[in-house]
Each structure stands twice: as C-alpha cells, then as structure tokens.
Design a protein around this nucleic acid. Structure first.
Lengths: 232, 232
DNA sequence: CGGGATCCAGTTCGATACTG
DNA sequence: CAGTATCGAACTGGATCCCG
C-alpha cells in the first residue's frame, strides 16, 4: 500500500498514516480493550469485512503495533497481541472516545443498534465482584428485536471470563432483564440509568432481588459513559 | 457522503467517522494550530487537493467542528474558525502527535521533506520575545535545494505576525542560517539541536551575535519535539 | 488573492462467497 | 477458527479551469 500517503514529517501526519485509515481506530479500540483473536475482533467490528480486517492487522503488525504470538492453552493459531507501542495507543483511543462522547450527537448513532455488539461490549465490561461467588446467569430480552436476536444470556462463573450466548445454555436463570434495545444501549452509553428507565417502565428486572438491586454496580458501562454530552 | 460509515454506537467509532477520514486529522492539526484561511490551510497540507480540502472543510462544518465567520480587518471572505467542539480536539491532536513522535520511525518521513512546509511551521512557532524589539530579518539557505526553493526569509516585526517570504524582500538581513533541509528538519523535530549540528559543521549561523547565540530560544520547535523517540 | 468546479485514472472498500 | 477470492461501487489525487 502507499506508505507515503501524506508525505509530511509532522508526527501527527506520521501517526495518522497508520491510525486514520478506515476502520483502523475502531479496530485499535478492540485491541486496546483486550481482544486477541481474529473472530473476537470480528465481533467487535462486525461491519468490517474479514478481508479488510486481515489487511489492517497486517498493517498494524508492520507498523509495530501488534505482534502475532501463540497464546498458551488456546488454539494453535497465534493471537494478535499489542506491542508496547500498541498499548501506548490507549491514550489516543481514550482522547478520541472522550471527544466523541462529549461532542458527537448520539441520536443518529442510536439508529444503528446491534444487540450482538452491545452484548459483546457488556460482556467485556461486566464486573462480577459485587456478585455472589457462584455461577450467575442473566437473561436479556429485547422486546423490539426479531426472534433470533431477541434473547441473550450472560453466564458469570467465578474466576472465569464472562460467557455470552444467544441460544439458551439451559442453566437456571438468576435474573431477567426485559427492555428494548435502544433503552439498554442508552443505559450502556451513560445517557440514562437503570433506575430512571425502570421508573418509566421501559425496563423490567425480575429474579434474584440482591442481584437486581446491585445491577448498576455489576453492569459495567461504556468506558466513556462518565463523559457528559455537550453536543445537544 | 456516507455518514453511516461504521454504524456503531461506540463513541470512538462515532468520533472516528468524522476524524479518521483521509487528511482530516492533518487538517484538524492545522486548524488547531490556528490557520483560518483556505490558502493558509493549503500551505499546511500542500499535498491535499483543493477539492478535497474544500470537501473536508464542509464536512467539519457539518460536524460542528468549524464555523465560517467573517474576520475583522481581513478579506471579505469569511474564515474557518474552530467551534468549542473544534478547540476541544486539541487533546486528540496532541495524543496522536505524541504517539507519532514516540513510536513512528522518523527516517522514512525524513525522506519527504518540503522546505515550504518546514518554513511555514517555523514561522508559526517562532518566538520573538527573546529578540530585540525591532524588525529582524533571518535568511535560511538550504544548500541541497534547487534554486527556487533554496532561499527563505523570516521577517519578525515587533507586535505583528512573523512573515515568510521565498523571494528577497530587500531588507537588511540580521542573521543567515545555512544548512541542508534534512538537518534543519531534524532540528525542528527535536531529533538533534542547533549546537550539535553547528559543531559538526552541518549548520552555519552568521550575522548578529546575540541573535545567533539565542537561536535555540527564539527558534520554536515542533510542538512534539519534547517527546523522546522510542521506535528505534 | 480566495474558493471552488470538473474530469479522469488509479486505489480502496464493501458484500458475499468460499477454503483449509 | 482463521482467513482468501472476487468484483462492482465509492473514494481519492492530479491537473486544469473558472469566477468574483
């Protein structure tokens, strides 16, 4: 590819050549968030074609941002790990995200909802520490979604990663959350809260009372949810 | 244009839709640095076609980052001014530039030198305060450049913006700086210093002794020159 | 000077299908 | 799971020209 895109000696231009190609910043966000597998990355950027994802990963590798490394106890395929230069992109992603949260109108973005992507993000940010130290299963039901995207299960096993299923894993369910996708997404983004939406009956939580009471504690929000919106 | 590029509700993706299109980050750097005129912006992004520059400016306006505003005492044409959202991009540009300075190899970039761009940047960052309070004229001579890009004049008038000329303005010259373009660019980027290069006879300063002695003080460097390079 | 339009050739991207 | 292949559509760059 033309590595001489801007041909400027300015550091901003030099960095932008690597970082500001289509999808790259979003992909870097996924990497900074910790995904290392091709298919995990795909779930984080579901609208990016695998061809382009593969190409971008090779570019990031050439730029010294990721490194292919076998991951013990996993597939024989090496994963994509951030190098030190890659980990050092965290402040860049943070600055971009904070600006976006503060200044980009959320409405048009809330027209592009995706339950799979939302659940994938929630899975990653869920905090099990305020939960009882046993397996907890939480079901989400998005009343406005078509059957095949309506039901989701988060399975929290003590000491393990949170699991996400879109087909019934068959476990007893400890908590049910029923709402529409837009409402849940707005909560995730910090634009509103569980309490507020429950009060308006746009969200209903049933099941284990303690789990329900602590929902705002274990339900991790978007890393940018703390930044107040100013664009309006 | 397709405003639905990524179709993700994540703030990073929302911001990247606006900021991470081709040339946009570099253009934003120019705006954050203070340029407000179409042709001034062109000097900062000389390899960007005017068509694309115009298009990007309209996109930034639609995104609420710039605003067209008449500038008093100047041309009847309105300039491009940053809005509050636009000024708030300074930390983003800073983060990107710092990362670039730290991690992107400078060598390939030093193959893409441009005396006009370098002088334009130097003009902007020159600090007249350590200079005598009268008109000072400094001539740069880039020994490796073809005749028409070899000679440059910076004219510092107290209380006014620094002027840049590529044709002899006819004033008496207070200081001559003679070197090659690569050396001067490396100094500007903080990869080396005037003292070091003068010691190697790669740079020669003649004229007003006081002005010469203070050169490292008034010769502003790249805003990213303080970040040490680690990519090597 | 300041700002933009047009045309064309070359690149990049998206959608979808497919392989080991 | 981890990617390739393919092809039309969209975007970009360069050159050139235009208008007030």
């Amino acid at each position: 590819m033309p590595e001489d895109r801007y041909r400027q000696f300015c550091p901003v231009a030099m960095a932008a050549e690597v970082l500001c190609t289509r999808w790259t910043m979003v992909l870097v966000r996924e990497l900074v968030a910790g995904s290392t597998r091709f298919n995990d990355l795909r779930r984080g950027v579901p609208r990016m074609s695998p061809t382009l994802l593969s190409k971008r990963l090779r570019e990031l590798e050439a730029a010294g941002i990721v490194r292919r490394e076998p991951i013990q106890g996993e597939s024989a395929y090496p994963g994509y790990e951030l190098t030190e230069a890659g980990r050092d992109l965290a402040p860049v992603v943070e600055a971009v995200g904070m600006w976006g949260q503060k200044w980009v109108e959320a409405e048009p973005s809330l027209a592009n909802l995706d339950p799979g992507l939302l659940m994938w993000d929630m899975r990653r940010n869920l905090d099990p520490t305020p939960m009882p130290a046993k397996r907890m299963v939480i079901t989400f039901r998005y009343t406005d979604q078509p059957e095949e995207r309506r039901h989701w299960w988060l399975i929290v096993e003590p000491g393990a990663e949170v699991d996400l299923c879109s087909i019934d894993p068959g476990f007893d369910v400890d908590l049910y959350v029923e709402t529409d996708l837009r409402c849940m997404t707005a909560i995730w983004m910090g634009l509103t809260s569980v309490r507020k939406e429950a009060g308006r009956d746009r969200l209903v939580v049933t099941g284990d009372d303690k789990l329900a009471a602590a929902i705002q504690d274990w339900l991790g929000l978007s890393p940018f949810a703390t930044q107040r919106k100013l664009s309006g």
